[in-house]
Design a protein around this nucleic acid. Structure first.
Lengths: 251, 251
DNA sequence: CGATCAATTGACCGACCTCAAGAGGTGTGG
DNA sequence: CCACACCTCTTGAGGTCGGTCAATTGATCG
């Protein structure tokens, strides 16, 4: 364990940013100094509750989380999944209370970034600010894709799109090309993400198997023919590439 | 007409940012210099098509626009509405092609902001960068609210939420408190925004009238009892306040 | 004054929901 | 090491909200 809480080595955030553009050693250092103590969560643990006062963001280092809201009638909507390298809790930037709950899907490790540190980062390293803005824009488009999926697609297309989305996002971290992955979500979770009931998620999954689109083995999901599924859903990978040429050159 | 295309006076963007924090004269000048020529659009005109190569963003000065996508089966999803003071086309920051179409809902005026100018702005005025980031985070939460609405609410709640959302957003510009507004959208548009058909939007609107929630007169929509409607939908205004205390003080 | 578009209404349909029960798997305590 | 509790997955039967199709009305505009 190399747990120096202030100087985390090899944080997932600079690694993620490096995926899109070259960072100078100085920039990387500034990023790592913004991060503070580490928190470990077991699967299912709540990191932040809705309306909790909060003045930090978090960087996901390991594992999955999701952000969600629960309505007055008890219904839940899962808004987004978060993976290593994501800067999360961004709604606390705009307000001093959390707009959504953050829950660990699998066991995970996050590090805290106080808002003030982020402010300093924007002021002193505008290039990083621009890059964070670009990533936020890309995530916003991915969220819009989910909206489109729920608003205008049937159950099988929704589930297929979500599976492709998860796989695309895992690839940014995993590096290589993968065609299967462990899905640490219950069918109730999937339903809450897709605007369906768990019962219908089940039927939809079975229908996808019957059509030869996926196979399942426990939590493991295997995408049989990704190209065909992409053609079927019109899915677009929003994570693979992000333009950075509009940012000024590194100092 | 004071149409100097390079030095637009009183752009809506600095006015919007001033709504949330004080801008120095210098910051205001930098913002205004980033904006370039002005474009006027008639209602229904397409500003940017999907997949169009694009290396500018736009500031809405007057009127409404929306961003949308059209699926292979012809279905359309309207993702978001844009009002004066909004910086739009942000997906072109992350990629060199537009991810969504931008269409004028009413006659409107926009000014162009080349991506490179935005990059310079982030590098030289980090505080503005942080503020834009905060606004983007707030809009992302508003989009998540729409997602929740479509995923987990019935037709009447969805329409009510959208009407409240539009009114809240208009208030940022209109200033005062309003309880009615002109809705330049067809019922087909509303359906595409809500994940409903235009036929069902019609029935839903009539049901809302029958229940005494709204009255309509041509394009004019009047919210009868806003408090009750907010309680009914759980709507949260994401535009009224945005925290800025985490940004370093102005230089 | 015809043409076009938006709003409206009716009849019927179907994708997804609700309710309910059973099966399989896992952890825990006795 | 078994028994029980609990959770998730699975399947069936029947209901409903919103969709589809189609026709009519009303408004706007050359």
């Amino acid at each position: 364990m190399s747990a120096n809480p202030v100087n985390i080595r090899r944080s997932a955030l600079p690694a993620r940013l490096s995926h899109y553009t070259h960072l100078t050693a100085e920039e990387r250092g500034a990023l790592e100094q913004a991060e503070q103590q580490e928190r470990r969560l077991v699967a299912g643990a709540l990191l932040v509750g809705v309306s909790a006062p909060i003045d930090s963001l978090f960087v996901v280092q390991q594992g999955w989380l999701h952000s969600s809201v629960t309505l007055a009638n008890g219904a839940r909507q899962i808004l987004r999944f978060h993976y290593p390298g994501d800067l999360i809790g961004t709604s606390s930037i705009a307000w001093s209370q959390a707009a959504t709950a953050l829950t660990a899907v699998s066991d995970c490790i996050v590090t805290e970034v106080p808002k003030a540190n982020l402010g300093r980062l924007f002021a002193t390293h505008g290039r990083i600010g621009g890059l964070l803005y670009a990533i936020a824009a890309a995530e916003s488009v991915a969220l819009a894709d989910r909206l489109t999926s729920i608003g205008r697609m049937n159950a099988i297309e929704r589930l297929a799109t979500l599976l492709l989305d998860i796989m695309a996002r895992l690839r940014v971290t995993a590096g290589g090309v993968i065609d299967s992955f462990d899905l640490p979500l219950t069918q109730a979770d999937l339903g809450d993400a897709l605007g369906l009931t768990k019962v219908h998620v089940n039927r939809t999954f079975r229908e996808m198997e019957a059509r030869g689109m996926v196979t399942r083995n426990g939590r493991r999901v295997h995408i049989v023919d990704e190209k065909a599924l992409i053609a079927f859903t019109g899915f677009v990978d929003r994570y693979a590439v992000i333009a950075t040429e509009w940012l000024p050159a590194a100092a």
